[in-house]
């Protein structure tokens, strides 16, 4: 049992959790949140793969990927939320 194995389990778990929610929920905001959780799960398995238990270091390239992923994700989330607000808002007037 090593550190990266624990995080592999957690990453796969987060991915599964998010996929389940995406399949079973219609609420826009919750779906967006599930997509965020999915992205986190992917980043976790990615970083756990880059982790070298022998040296305790992580490959910098997947670190850069994860960072890029975070910034991309916040951009798409902001766009999705803006769209969801417009859709939700329009039905009221």
């Amino acid at each position: 049992m090593t550190t990266d194995l624990v995080y592999h389990v957690a990453g796969a778990g987060l991915t599964g959790l998010a996929l389940w929610r995406l399949a079973t929920c219609r609420d826009a905001l919750r779906r967006i949140m599930a997509l965020n959780v999915l992205a986190i799960g992917i980043a976790m398995v990615l970083l756990a793969s880059g982790f070298d238990a022998a040296t305790g270091r992580t490959d910098p390239v997947p670190q850069a990927f994860a960072l890029t992923g975070i910034v991309v994700l916040v951009s798409v989330t902001a766009a999705l939320l803006a769209l969801a607000e417009r859709i939700g808002g329009r039905s009221n007037d």
Binding site: G50, P62, F65, V76
Partner: peptide, 30 residues
């Protein structure tokens, strides 16, 4: 309203597609 709803569905489907792609890339790296 129709276009906005279509855009929302498009973006969420597109993001899900991108995330599948990203998962594949992560596994390729692994």
């Amino acid at each position: 309203r129709r276009a906005l709803r279509a855009a929302f569905d498009y973006l969420s489907a597109g993001l899900a597609g991108s995330l599948l792609l990203l998962l594949g890339v992560a596994l390729a790296y692994a």
